[in-house]
């Protein structure tokens, strides 16, 4: 059965490796120039000397050079990439058998169809976990100089530097496998799985994630003028501590009130969110196995 699963998903695995290789090459090229600039501008020294804006010129020149490349160009692609990867692998897993009639072949062998499915799911899930972990590692390494300035708690950076990335992929995969069994067609199953995945993904990011734990508040008296860094994405952030995730800044009289999630909650948040998506994945895959076992269709 292991060989059968491998043979059927071989081309997907190779395509995945190809994508990963392309990503790695891109990461090496960009990251090398970023690392060169980082040390050339002496930013490391600035950071050690003081947390609060003594190297503003150097930082803003570095940021203007790389932030658009690192933060924006990638964002749209990377937002949907884990979902695309998941549904592309997941949707055909059962739907293709139903589309081409090969389910009659596959499920009339001596291995019962539930074991056939369980083996395939275990192996493909394993493959996706490895791919997700590799992507996470490459992106984390690639962004490392930038992370030293901005931290990795922001939206769309957070999404790629921890277990959540793998969890997103698995969730899209699970939805797509289930949709494939229900809709019996690969392409409609991809669409039907991707849309709820994206909806949940965005809802979690913008509605739930800021509230995983109650945010902290930082008050600053600006009677004599505040630091020049105002705004949610400032470096260093309003709270003065790199890595804090600033949610909002409001001015009340002479005070600015900053609500934020402190940097040390990063891993806690990662595991909460990854757990949420893993639970969704398990529910979808569990439902698939149960439905196939009963198979009233």
């Amino acid at each position: 059965m292991i060989w059968v699963s491998w043979r059927q998903h071989r081309s997907q695995a190779i395509a995945c490796l190809g994508l990963l290789a392309a990503l790695t090459v891109y990461a090496i090229v960009v990251s090398t120039s970023m690392r060169t600039a980082f040390s050339h501008d002496g930013l490391a020294a600035c950071l050690t000397r003081s947390q609060a804006g003594s190297c503003q010129a150097a930082i803003s020149s570095f940021m203007s050079k790389f932030s658009s490349m690192v933060n924006i160009a990638f964002w749209a692609v990377l937002l949907i990439a884990p979902g695309l990867l998941g549904v592309l692998v997941g949707a055909p897993l059962i739907a293709r058998e139903l589309e081409y009639g090969t389910w009659r072949l596959a499920w009339s062998q001596t291995v019962p169809r539930t074991r056939w499915l369980a083996t395939k799911l275990a192996l493909v899930t394993g493959g996706l976990v490895v791919a997700g972990a590799a992507m996470t590692a490459v992106i984390t390494w690639y962004r490392e100089p930038m992370d030293r300035l901005t931290g990795h708690f922001f939206n769309n950076i957070y999404d790629f530097e921890g277990p959540v990335l793998t969890a997103y992929i698995l969730c899209a995969f699970g939805f797509a496998v289930l949709a494939g069994l229900l809709l019996r067609r690969s392409i409609p199953a991809m669409v039907a799985a991707f849309i709820p995945w994206l909806a949940i993904r965005l809802a979690v990011e913008f509605l739930l994630r800021p509230r995983f734990q109650a945010p902290l508040t930082f008050r600053q008296n600006c009677a004599h003028g505040c630091s020049i860094n105002t705004g949610v994405g400032a470096v260093p952030p309003e709270t003065g501590h790199i890595g804090d995730w600033v949610l909002s800044i409001t001015n009340s009289g002479s005070q600015t009130v900053t609500t934020y999630q402190p940097a040390d909650r990063f891993w806690h948040f990662q595991f909460i969110e990854a757990g949420l998506f893993v639970v969704l994945t398990a529910a979808a895959l569990g439902a698939t196995i149960w439905l196939l076992h009963r198979r009233p269709a």
């Binding site: 090969t102 389910w103 009659r104 009339s108 062998q109």
Partner: peptide, 13 residues
């Protein structure tokens, strides 16, 4: 399943 083998319509492979 161990007792029956099946050649389905249009012999899917």
């Amino acid at each position: 399943l161990a007792r029956v083998s099946y050649v389905a319509q249009d012999h899917p492979l």
